[in-house]
Design a protein around this nucleic acid. Sequence first.
RNA 1: GGCGACGUAGCAAAGUGGUAAUGCAGCGGUCUGCAAAACCGCCAUUCGCGGGUUCGAUUCCCGCCGUCGCCUCCA
Length: 470
Amino acid sequence: MSLQIYNTLTRTTEPFTTLETGVVRMYVCGVTPYDEAHIGHAMSAVVFDVIRRYLEHCGYRVQHIVNFTDVDDKVIARAAQLGRDALELSSELAEEFLAQLRALNVQPATAYPRVTQTIPEIIAFVQGLIDSGHAYATDGDVYFRVASDPDYGKLSGRSLDEMLVGTRFELDPRKESPADFALWKAARPGEPAWESPWGPGRPGWHIECSAMSMKHLGEQIDIHGGGSDLVFPHHENEIAQSESLTGKRFARYWVHNGMLQLVNPKTRQVEKMSKSLGNVVTVASFLEQYDADVFRLIVLSSSYRSPLTYNSEIAADNARKLERLLTGLQPASGASEEGPAVTALAAAVATANAEFRAAMDDDFNSAGALAALFELVRAINSARDAGVGGAPFAAAQRALRDLAGVLGLRLSPRPKGRRQDIAPFVELLVEVRNELRKARQFALADMVRGRLAELGVTLEDGPQGTHWKL
RNA sequence: GGCGACGUAGCAAAGUGGUAAUGCAGCGGUCUGCAAAACCGCCAUUCGCGGGUUCGAUUCCCGCCGUCGCCUCCA
């Protein structure tokens, strides 16, 4: 069985093949940097990071392009509100987001193109659509002529007729059809603008992605991704533009992640993240409290296509899951390299590898892949208890790290901030407490352990001595 | 109103036409001076509700109820 991917375009799960052997061309819609990034943005980035890592694990070379929509209505509005330059604001927020992606262990994309760096290509694209009769200019705006595309609506599963009946397209006398959408917007005073054959203006929302995808990956790509909220109109319009211009099928697989939603722990009601509800969880605030692996576990625990519910309980549960995974990396306590326990461990490693692969091949079933990791952790811990050590034990731990790595888990939570400084003091207390234990002064020893626990330091006495962690 | 998705143990969440992974929490045991961690065992006769197809359905079909997404800016 090889990799199968669910394709929004066909609404079926299909075997994955690429245009060019061994290479995957993948374009993922990135963010519009107009405000702080929240964990919904991070979810999408992590989902496609896992897809990319798995494709690479399968031996593909992945060309992964993620854009920044660094000029659009929201950026301009937000900048005006702050009294700042729009492009300066979006550039600053984009850099901030890139830093957060690094913190989340998201592999850097092959390129992060921006609208403002793609203006000539966008203008050429729009001109091509005008020349071929798929677009028209009016008053400095350019619109895509939806009626010129007989396939329009194929991604989102709706017909043009359906769309025009009963929906709220605004009536604009300059548009031939209410469903026509802007490719180029004439500049209004004070807005960023570029010269074009239709006068000064800026690109519409959808054209940039088509242009950037073509610029960086060519006319046809393998995977186009983004959040499920982008299916209509954004991706529908991208298909219309690109296929009208080239006459070729634009993307072979359309992959969409479900939306992250908040569940209010008190009312158990689902809430949208919104400023007015005051419940926006930013990437920065999440990472202040939890390790990046915790976020990744939350995302990996369910299907990328389903809506993901988030609240603090779920974060805490996943923090404990991470602790559990980490127990598999505790050092061996014995040195036995043969015997039934060693055989069992080797078998568990083989099973974990096979089950991991089978799960991920099935449309990136990360929850199933995680289950394989947890089973491997149990096998490793059992083996440790049975005295297994040496090369077989190391090999099993390496397998655990490797598989976790395919999912982008670091499994090495770094102590936050300056906490590392306390190590010598904690170790001193541990040493004193162990002297007390030897002297059977258990009341005092327990007091030391209890007081340290209150300070957030956990002590665990094992056969190898005392282990402490924050 | 239109299009679409989902509803599995206390929580989260996989999955299959032949009788339910995994993690957290909980319970019992081993280990420990006591804990913790680890390990062993237990924890859904049942997969929103009602019909239908089938030898057999949680899995397929229909209806209902509920939740959510999109249709307007959104990852």
